[in-house]
Design a protein around this nucleic acid. Structure first.
Length: 682
DNA sequence: GAGCACTGC
């Protein structure tokens, strides 16, 4: 509860600074890098104008191998303009201009806009490439793509020779893919120079002012600062620290509701689905009992797992005289832009993944946001006009936040990244030139993981890719899934394994509305296999295919048809890769023992053993684990299982299990399990 | 007997 519950809510806040995206007194400047700040302001201004004049911009950009930008307005003009400038300068004649985006929708919509501006049919001069969709042709010179897609292309062409320019957009988001691409383009640029190839030009675009890190990494490349057109935002902090941010959010929502004109919408940042639904319910309840003078309110939850139709509600304007209150996860920070927001309420909390390299465990935990994230949230209030941001924490607490969100590459399992780097032919992956280095433990643990899978081998301290590892890298999958697929022809069950891996590599296909629990259980019973969740999922997928992907069937059987559609696409893609490798594709029919045998051999690192006291131990780390209550094996006590993933919540749960024999595990990795099983028994 | 931020190949 707030410390001073008797004060009216507004009195609990004190104003902070008025925030501009960039300093108003220094309109857009072209600054040399730090330490050389002697350029007179009028010269800076003049140079700034270069940016709005293609010729002058190009003069500047084309004479430098790497250029780092800040962009005033996110997702606006510049991302569509700059590639066109470069193309018109003739740089596209020798190769393609690639513009990478962290998200598919952004790549697709930007390509559409640029094609329109060039009055060209999409897929001709201007195109895009994202997973499952390629709208390019031999004529394509401006190619918008996801960062992951360019990375995948780099495996076949590490010097990126098809491209003359790579524009890395939204670089401040620091996705794993962008971070690896930084190293890839830097290496490609150097190698192409050494080999006397056509030079590769790199342009890094970031929405934040913190581009020093980028500039530093690319050998102190020049930085172009641009003025933003962000409207001023008044920041408020609480006077006292709040122990209950839910309560504080509620109080703040209704304070604003009572005082502000009804056309001013509110966006509240919370951490997760459950919290959001609870707050939305409470708001609606309270709103019902407010005096008529207060005006009405429509409360809309927003999070990624919401069905698409309900997500669209955030874009619909509220009825006249009614206030729109959107309660959202951080999806509204970057992925979804909502217009008309006048007030942002920032709880200062976020749910994010953390990685522990010792246990190999990823944990989803509620934690404090970074300063950059808090500014990003605040900025959502000033897109069309000035706005306000209520931070439900004190200014001192804000000062104590970390400046930038820790890049994803320092918070995730690196096995897939390391495999990809080796497939790119990077000579010394252990010392790869990351912009932000992951911890040595994380790198070591990833390489050990790959070694266990037989993807890499160590000779005199040097790590290299095996033939198996090279094949594994061709799959857009986690290494252990790729390995399982590659093993499957030995067990004559590649079709089944392709289905299971596809099912495991998308969000769950099971739809579990809590209110219809009994119905769900009944519907699911006919697919349940005593061999575990993998087999149960396979049964569901087989039944789904039998009825031809019928949506009605999905509804009746509580199956998420959107995710099921995705499974089909993934499976088709994986099958294509197998065919190119000339892998034998066959079905084992009813003999599912082979499927489990194959899974045991591919997933042996994720194995657990029943203990005499009825609990389980994970065999690789000897960590106590439990069967998740959602598993079909929850009430069974199988002696040995392999699991898809560990979920660390109230306990450490294994999710998605498969019954296996101890002999199979020993057979899969005799030395490893000889060691592990002994250790367990002692 | 629990409960999953967000992307992406």
């Amino acid at each position: 509860m707030p410390h001073d519950p008797d004060l009216p809510p507004a009195k609990k806040f004190k104003p902070g600074s008025v925030f501009f995206r960039l300093d108003k007194n220094k309109p857009g400047m072209l600054l040399p890098r730090k330490g050389n700040a002697t350029t007179p302001v009028d010269v800076q201004r003049k140079q700034m104008n270069h940016f709005y004049c293609p010729h002058l911009y190009l003069n500047y950009a084309l004479t430098r191998p790497v250029l780092c930008h800040t962009l005033g307005e996110t997702g606006s003009g510049k991302t569509t303009q700059i590639p066109q400038y470069l193309y018109e300068a003739g740089i596209g004649r020798q190769g393609i201009i690639a513009i990478t985006q962290p998200r598919r929708v952004a790549a697709i919509s930007l390509a559409g806009r640029v094609a329109e501006e060039k009055r060209s049919q999409l897929g001709k001069l201007v195109g895009y490439t994202v997973r499952f969709e390629d709208a390019t042709s031999p004529e394509t010179k401006l190619k918008f793509m996801t960062d992951g897609m360019l990375l995948r292309e780099a495996i076949g062409d590490p010097l990126l020779l098809r491209y003359t320019v790579v524009v890395l957009d939204e670089a401040h988001e620091r996705t794993v893919h962008t971070d690896v691409l930084f190293g890839v383009v830097k290496t490609a640029q150097r190698r192409r120079k050494e080999l006397n190839k056509i030079p590769l030009k790199v342009i890094v675009m970031s929405a934040t002012m913190d581009v020093d890190l980028f500039s530093e990494y690319f050998n102190k490349s020049p930085v172009l600062y641009l003025e933003g057109r962000q409207h001023p935002i008044q920041i408020y902090y609480t006077k006292q620290p709040q122990s209950d941010y839910l309560q504080a959010a509620l109080v703040t929502i209704f304070q604003i509701h009572q005082e502000a004109p009804p056309s001013h919408d509110i966006l509240v940042f919370m951490t997760g689905q459950e919290e959001i639904e609870a707050l939305a319910r409470t708001c609606r309840d309270i709103a019902k009992h407010l005096p008529d003078s207060c005006g009405s309110m429509v409360v809309i939850p927003m999070y990624a797992s919401l069905p698409p139709v309900q997500q669209l509600r955030v874009f619909q304007p509220a009825p006249k005289g009614c206030r729109k209150v959107i309660v959202s996860t951080n999806i509204a920070e970057t992925s979804v832009t909502i217009s008309g927001i006048k007030y942002v309420i920032d709880t200062g909390m976020v749910k994010a993944k953390r990685f522990n390299p010792d246990s190999g465990l990823e944990v989803l935990a509620v934690q404090r946001v970074s300063k950059a994230q808090a500014w990003q949230r605040a900025g959502r209030a000033g897109r069309e006009d000035s706005g306000s941001c209520y931070r439900l924490y004190t200014e001192q607490e804000f000062d104590g936040l970390i400046p930038m969100t820790v890049p994803e590459i320092q918070r995730c399992n690196l096995a897939g990244v390391m495999l990809q780097l080796m497939a790119l032919g990077i000579p010394d992956v252990m010392n790869f030139d990351f912009m932000s280095k992951p911890s040595p433990e994380a790198v070591r643990s990833a390489v050990e993981h790959l070694e266990l899978l037989g993807a890499v081998e160590r000779k005199e301290g040097h790590v290299s890719l095996t033939a198996l590892g090279k094949k594994m890298a061709s799959f857009p999958l986690e290494p252990r899934y790729a390995k399982t697929i590659l093993l499957s022809p030995d067990y004559s069950c590649s079709e089944e394994i392709l289905s299971i891996v596809s099912l495991l590599s998308v969000d769950t296909v099971l739809y579990n509305p809590p209110a219809r629990r009994e119905e769900v259980l009944t519907a699911r019973k006919k697919f349940t296999s005593s061999e575990g969740d993998f087999m149960t999922l396979l049964n569901i997928y087989r039944a789904f295919k039998k009825v031809g992907g019928n949506k009605e069937w999905c509804r009746e059987n509580f199956v998420n048809s959107r995710n099921m559609g995705l499974v089909k696409e993934v499976q088709a893609q994986l099958r294509d890769i197998c065919l190119k490798m000339k892998l034998k594709l066959e079905s084992c029919g009813a003999d599912t023992g082979n499927v489990r045998l194959c899974l045991a051999h591919g997933m042996f690192i994720n194995a657990a053993e029943l203990q005499p006291d009825g609990s389980y131990l994970a065999l690789d780390t000897h960590q106590p684990v439990a069967i998740h209550p959602s598993s079909v094996l929850f009430q069974a006590k199988p002696a040995y299982v392999v699991f898809n993933e560990l979920l660390h919540t109230s306990r450490c749960y294994m999710r998605d299990l498969c019954l296996v024999d101890a002999d199979w595990l020993l057979d899969a990795a005799p030395e490893y399990f000889g060691r592990k099983l002994r250790a367990t028994k002692s």
